[in-house]
Structure formats: C-alpha cells, structure tokens
Amino acid sequence: MNTILEALQYAFIQRALVGGVFIGCCCAFLGVFLVLRRLSLIGDGLAHVGLAAGGLGLFLNTQPLWVSIPLVMFASLWILWLSDKADVYADAAIGLVSAVSVAVGIILASVGRGFNIDLFSFLFGSILAISMHEVILSVALSVIVIGMVFLFYHELFAIAFEEEYARVLGIPVEKINKILILCTAVTVSLGIRVVGTMLISSLIIFPAITALQIARGFRLAMLLAAVFSTLSVLIGVFVSYLADLPTGATIVLINFAFFVLSFIIKKMR
C-alpha cells in the first residue's frame, strides 16, 4: 500500500494512470463494436497507417500527429469502403490498407533519405512517457468518443446486431459506420503516440472479448469492457512498479489474465 502511495507521488505515474484509463475506456467502448463487427484488427492496421503518415509528417517537417490523424481517418474510411462496397472481407481490407501504407511509408522514408529524428521513436509512445499535453488531448478525445458512443448507442447496437435490419429501422447506417470508424481512427492515431501500438491494439481487443465472455446484456458488456480496461491499466501500472517490469507489456498480460479468468467463469456457469 505504501509503495502504491509512493508511486502515486510521481507525476509521470499519475499521467500514465489518467492518460491510460481515458484512452483505455475509448478503446474498450469502440472495441465492443469493432470486435462484434469483425474489425478487431483495425487497431493494428491503422497503427501501420500511422507509421506511414508519421513518415510523411517528418518528411514535410511538420508535427507528425497533424499529418497522421487525417491520413489515418482517410485510411479508416478506405477500409470501410472496401469492406462495404467492394465486397472485400473486413480482415482482408485491413490487411490491404495497412500493407499499402507500410509500403508507402518505407518508400517515403527511402526517397526522403533521412530524417532529423528516428521515425519509430517519434511515433511510438510509451505509457510511462505521456506528456501533460497528451493527457489533455486524451481526455478531450475520450469525452468526444464516449459522447459519440452514448449519443449513437442504440444505432450502433442495432447495426452491430444486424446491419440490414438497422437499415429497415430507418437508421442511416452509412453515416453511423463512418462515425464509428472515424472515432476509431482518431483514437488509434492519438493512442499510438500516447501509449504505443502494442497497447492500443490490445486495449481495443482484450477488454471487449473479455466482456463478451461473461456479459449478460449489451449495456453490461460495454460497462464491463470499460471496467476491465480501467482495471488493467491501474493494476498494470502498479504491478509493473512493484515487480519492476515494463508497464505496457504488463498491462497486456493483465488483460490476458482477465480474459482467461472470464473464460473459465463462462465455462463453469
């Protein structure tokens, strides 16, 4: 207990907790919809796009985040278009878009023949190294994303359950899909900068699938996903502090432990 209080005195740990919990909740809420719609790998895919976009940003000598957010948004719409209109399966569409982005990124880095700072280090953040500026951005983003999810909860639910039926209900399915995918794009591009790729893709997938194992009801699934996500960040930061382990990887493994636990609970019921 004392060690926890001791850890809490450090500003970087406070920021890791706040930034991690907010980004984690965004990911958890979006994750439930993304996993149910077979788009769970989108976090990984868009992270690759973020890399390419960051390369372009460095190439153009601007702040990479301002290049990567619009480009990742564009790529996410492209994934949506491919899976909706071009009859490409969602997983293949994600693969296609991320492969193209990586290729473009590598060529850009190659043509540019050099940067002033290493591309990877600039793009991939660590949860321990969140700046105050990034905490504010994460909180603002979460307010927007969680607000969107609440505002369109019923629409998102109906579409996740059955897209065609949602259309029959008079729901503007295309618009809602775009909102979901754009929220994901912003979360991912900010998230990779704040907490890193590994953490962002696992925070999208894990809390959602863990909640889906045991939740009896959709509202409950959303709530549980947010709870699992928050707990994994809190426990992960403290455990990594106590046991002297890398924080990001610890959070991922705690998420995995939650998943195994919920799987066992489900089987025992």
Binding site: L36, L151, F152, H154, E155, F157, A158, A160, F161, E162, A166, V168, L169, G170, I171, A211, L212, A215, R216, G217, F218, R219, L220, A221
Partner: peptide, 28 residues
Amino acid sequence: NLHKGFPATVREIVASGILSAKSFPRMI
C-alpha cells in the same frame, strides 16, 4: 449461428425495434 455469442438480451433486441419510430437523437 449468426448471433451466437452476441451479448444482447431478448429485452434489448426487442427494444431495438422501437428505433424505427424515432429520429435523431434516438433515445429509448
């Protein structure tokens, strides 16, 4: 098998039918 593992209760599914009578912002 379409809805296998989908975490919605019957009540939630039935309630989603109400949305056709609503326009933005759709609240139940």
